[in-house]
Design a protein around this nucleic acid. Sequence first.
DNA 1: ATTATATGATACCTTTTGGTTTCATGTCAA
DNA 2: TTGACATGAAACCAAAAGGTATCATATAAT
Lengths: 111, 111
Amino acid sequence: MTGTYARHDIFQAIADPTRRELLSMLAEQEMPVTAISAQFPISRTAVSKHLHILSEAGLVTERKAGRETRYKLQPEALLELKQWLSYYERFWDKKLAALRSFVESGETQDK
Amino acid sequence: MTGTYARHDIFQAIADPTRRELLSMLAEQEMPVTAISAQFPISRTAVSKHLHILSEAGLVTERKAGRETRYKLQPEALLELKQWLSYYERFWDKKLAALRSFVESGETQDK
DNA sequence: ATTATATGATACCTTTTGGTTTCATGTCAA
DNA sequence: TTGACATGAAACCAAAAGGTATCATATAAT
């Protein structure tokens, strides 16, 4: 955590397990920093830095409400990941198809 | 890169841009280390380390063939990522549904 | 007005990461 | 069997990452 939050992309953002936990915690409820960090063994400052990284990657939104800052999930940001993944899905689909036809041809031989 | 490759998970593995490039390069063809590293501006050793990390995460397979080691994509490993993502898809689906009904109710009022 | 709360900003520290260079080893070819 | 090629392994390095503690500031509550 560098202090100058220099453009983390979504892949880096979700690489950290703590940040993935943060995302799941913020999926259903909007929460302020103190309430969030109470759920973690690390300091409030550390949690706050993770939240900034997630925010920078567009995965959560920050909203000031009086003296607190409330965070919640911005699920649309995960679309980029979904698209990245979809490119590779065809490769595992291809392998599954190959396996299926192999099994089927095996059955044909047996009959 | 630590030398002792201590269990990288798939999220860490895909966090690095070089490693993501490696994956796309190995998606179609199986390739040996030297041929792979010729495509990158970094040293062969560095590429080799990235390949080990990907291999450890199950994203590529290593196969020794004579004096060379050939790598290729193991696309099934990405299933874990797909499952993680699918949990969040319902959140953005929910938002889309809310938006749609808002737009529709607006149209109703206009008529 | 004064105190307590919620958070951000800084400075600092340690470990991990991504990279390099050099050396060792196994394999192929002449 | 000697040399060239493909890799792995080790030692080392600078920068980034994750974390802490402390200080400053804005907002609420008494």
